[in-house]
């Protein structure tokens, strides 16, 4: 009485097919990542050494290491974070905890979404006009970082807002009911519980800025500058631009060199991601719920 009917068998076949198809898509998704990493490791793995990380490029950038570009990228990303995180977090707190649902709020939300859609080359030109020329920072780390900051602002806001909204509403009501002001509620309960989400979101998103080239190209990154920046008003080399330059602009570069540079750049991004995951795990463990 339990024998499969034709219909059952057909359903089972469809099941298997759909499942296989989706598995295939998932594998296709992972393949490029693995391929990229594999090719880079095979072709550029030989370049990796402490010397490569900690010396300057020499011989018209056809030999030596990547130190100035590495340090430059760290500067650029760090200052961009310093600028965008406070602004972005404050904006997200306002939007998710205070803002009434009105026309102004909706316009702001729309602006944020659109800001996220602005191509990076447009950000670059904006940075050139605003920070380099109008504010008179010149082509400098400061101008490039601020450009990056504006570019990352929407993702910081979105990541923060998601983290805030993940904090159960019941916590807020519990606080309000003891006579807590909105700010006391945010400061004592909402933010402490959102901080792991905010940090991870922000780091994950912002680690991508380490690889951005266009926004820093006109605003502060130098083609070749074999010393470390002394202040934020200096120009600097950066990993992403350096990679672009040695891959396309400089003759007689040994084949392995660009792959090595790319490996270091990807390594930086992966390190930041690992940091954010570690941080999240650690903060989650401290949570009291």
């Amino acid at each position: 009485m339990f024998e499969a009917t034709d219909l059952n068998r057909r359903d089972a076949r469809t099941q298997r097919l759909v499942r296989a198809l989706f598995l295939l898509m998932t594998v296709l998704l992972a393949a490029p990542v693995l391929l990229i990493l594999g090719v880079l490791l095979v072709k550029g793995g030989t370049m990796l050494s402490w010397d490569f990380l900690f010396t300057e490029p020499t011989n018209g950038m056809t030999a030596g290491g990547v130190l100035p570009a590495l340090v430059g990228t760290v500067w650029l990303v760090a200052i961009a974070l310093l600028a965008s995180v406070p602004v972005g977090v404050a904006a997200a707190v306002y939007l998710s905890e205070y803002a009434p649902d009105n026309v102004l709020t909706r316009v702001i939300n729309l602006a944020i979404i659109n800001l996220a859609g602005v191509p990076s080359i447009v950000h670059a030109l904006f940075g050139l006009g605003a920070f380099v020329i109008f504010f008179g920072f010149g082509t400098s780390i400061l101008a490039a970082s601020l450009t990056l900051a504006i570019m990352t602002l929407p993702v910081v806001i979105v990541a923060t807002r998601e983290a805030l909204q993940a904090v159960p509403h019941a916590f807020r009501e519990a606080c309000w009911n003891m006579g807590a002001t909105r700010w006391q509620t945010i400061w004592r309960v909402v933010l402490p519980n959102a901080v792991s989400g905010i940090l991870t979101g922000v780091i994950l998103e912002v680690s991508r800025t380490a690889g951005e080239t266009a926004p820093i190209m006109f605003t502060g990154a130098a083609f070749f500058l074999p010393f470390l920046p002394a202040s934020v008003f200096d120009q600097t080399m950066a990993m992403s631009l350096h990679l672009f330059v040695i891959a396309t602009q400089v003759p007689d570069v040994p084949e392995a060199l660009p792959y090595g540079v790319a490996l270091v750049l990807i390594g930086m991004v992966l390190a930041m991601n690992a940091l954010s995951i570690g941080l999240r795990t650690w903060l989650r463990q401290k949570k009291k719920w």
Binding site: A170, F171, N177, M178, P192, K288
Partner: peptide, 26 residues
Amino acid sequence: VRKQVGMVFQRPNVLPLSIRDNVIFG
């Protein structure tokens, strides 16, 4: 107003804090 009027909800909504901190929070 909220200080004078306390509310208990359908689902217990303790704060993600220690027992002591929950009691002393308000």
